[in-house]
Computed example of a mutant assay.
Amino acid sequence: MTQMQQAQRNLCRMLGLYNDEPEPIEAALHEFIGMFNGPLLLDVSDALNEMFNLNDDGAEAIDNALIGMIGEGNDELLEVVAHEAV
């Protein structure tokens, strides 16, 4: 078993996705990834919004201030931000 496979197996054990049964690591990884297929639960969405201040009215002003600080490449970044906002 490679070091990467050992690390994946250990991570899956710590996350409770894998036990000592001879189940392939890929099956455990697919099960873990499958947990994220679909909309987030409202509690999870609310927690993320709170953690990252996504509902903050001042967030746009902070974003604009940070964009103003980057200097070179500002126009390209503004185009990307404007395109993503659409």
Rank of each mutant, 00 (worst) to 15 (best):
M1R: 13
M1I: 06
T2V: 03
M4A: 15
M4T: 09
Q5I: 10
Q8Y: 12
Q8M: 14
N10M: 12
L11M: 10
C12S: 00
C12Q: 06
R13V: 05
M14R: 15
M14G: 09
M14C: 13
Y18N: 05
Y18K: 15
N19W: 12
N19S: 11
N19H: 09
N19I: 02
P24M: 11
P24S: 12
I25Y: 00
A27Y: 14
A27D: 14
A28T: 06
A28L: 06
A28W: 01
A28R: 03
L29N: 07
L29D: 02
L29Q: 07
H30S: 13
H30K: 15
E31L: 06
E31V: 01
I33W: 06
I33F: 07
G34L: 01
M35K: 15
F36D: 03
F36Q: 03
N37Q: 14
N37W: 07
G38Y: 00
G38N: 02
P39M: 11
L41K: 14
L42H: 11
D43N: 13
D43H: 05
D43T: 09
S45D: 12
D46K: 14
D46S: 12
A47I: 00
N49K: 14
E50H: 11
E50F: 10
E50A: 14
L54C: 04
L54Y: 05
L54V: 06
D56A: 04
D57C: 05
D57L: 11
G58Y: 11
A59N: 05
E60T: 08
E60W: 01
A61S: 13
D63P: 00
N64S: 09
N64W: 08
A65L: 14
A65C: 05
L66M: 00
I67H: 02
G68V: 02
M69E: 12
I70E: 02
I70F: 04
I70H: 04
I70V: 05
G71P: 03
G71N: 00
G73M: 01
G73R: 03
N74H: 09
N74F: 00
D75S: 10
D75N: 08
D75L: 12
D75M: 05
E76A: 15
L77E: 00
L78K: 14
E79R: 14
V80W: 07
V80E: 10
V80N: 06
V81F: 06
V81T: 03
A82L: 12
H83I: 05
E84T: 07
A85V: 02
A85G: 12
V86D: 10
